[in-house]
Design a protein around this nucleic acid. Structure first.
Lengths: 188, 188
DNA sequence: TTTCTATGACTGACTAGTCACACTTAAGGA
DNA sequence: TCCTTAAGTGTGACTAGTCAGTCATAGAAA
């Protein structure tokens, strides 16, 4: 009986928030996000009751998108090292292809506005990644450590590698491969 | 002939800022920092012209303190692995002993308010750490990579390890040692 | 006609930084 | 030893600006 809410507008707000937060940080005004999305200030609050709600939604969405990118086209017939390297490359390609998404995700990751519930949800989204890491380390020296911890070490290495690749594009591929080799010596 | 500016007050402001930013983030009001330091709002701006200046100073100070802690009591007679492990343990002890400083430093590290100049300065403060890493990797598989990159990988691993130890204190020592073993397999 | 969405000016709360005035220090003169 | 005075520091109420979130009104769909 009434005018339906538009999914396009919600997406426009989320995409605008990614762009604006990338450059202005989490203190980016909602008015700026709304303007960038081509939507009125008031409408933003129709789609997301509070600014924190928008932030939490964005965090989960970006994590899910990154996880989906990581698992894209994994060669399941190949040996495990090849598969994990494929995943490693996927994550790094996603991060270098979408620097705005990565930067915004980095802002969100360290924010207190992102609730433990959202972080839990995001952990669920990256289950596929964890499963691959589990198979990779199961006969290696880190086989008795909690999987979460090993996954965190991998994420830390990948993140530092991406930072380096962005700062120093000339050696990007070489450093990407070298860091993966290091990671593999560590776990396998 | 005039009343001298008090170094105690400056330190009180820096320490108060560490505590307040730890819990309230970088958006902590200057008024709150001044109150915590037992100093008037106006005085804070006598010691630090702008809020960013305080933030930058705090960043460099905390980095220097961490570097000093890292190099404390290195057994220079022992083999290189022992020395690097000593440094690794020092950093991790500092971080777990002063969680407020670490958390505030983490807030500052990702902030755009911290200028490249401050980051450069901080890099100078940790030169001793870099020198040790250089000796550790010089015959290993990462000998041809830039030292900065290898140091960044170590920092990333140490940081992820500290996060894990804080979340999961029961296994702290075991994970600390296991992560160092992994790091050593990676570089040596 | 009903029931919702869309708009943007507006509100109230908050914050970085200022400023006029009060106070403190130390050097120098008596 | 005490007083004067120059040259600052210390204070907190205040200003100017910002921002999250609201609300009255207009308009679209059913």
């Amino acid at each position: 009986m009434a005018r339906p809410r538009s999914e396009d507008k919600e997406n426009a707000i989320l995409e605008a928030a990614t762009r604006v937060i990338c450059t202005h940080g989490l203190s980016a005004p909602t008015a700026m996000i709304a303007k960038e999305a081509g939507v009125s200030n008031g409408s933003l609050f129709a789609y997301f009751e509070k600014k924190v709600d928008l932030l939490n939604r964005l965090y989960v969405d970006l994590k899910a998108e990154m996880a989906a990118a990581a698992l894209d086209g994994i060669p399941t017939e190949s040996d495990i090292r090849t598969q994990v390297f494929h995943m490693w490359s996927n994550v790094i390609r996603w991060a270098t292809d979408c620097p705005e998404k990565r930067r915004t995700l980095a802002h969100l990751s360290v924010s207190d506005d992102v609730t433990p519930e959202s972080r839990e949800k995001a952990l669920g989204e990256i289950a596929g990644v964890a499963e691959l890491v589990e198979r990779a380390r199961q006969n290696g020296p880190m086989r008795d450590l909690p999987l979460d911890f090993v996954a965190a070490l991998m994420t830390a290495l990948a993140d530092a590698t991406i930072d380096d690749m962005i700062r120093n594009p000339a050696n990007a591929d070489r450093h990407c491969a070298a860091a993966f080799d290091g990671f593999w010596r560590m776990i396998a």
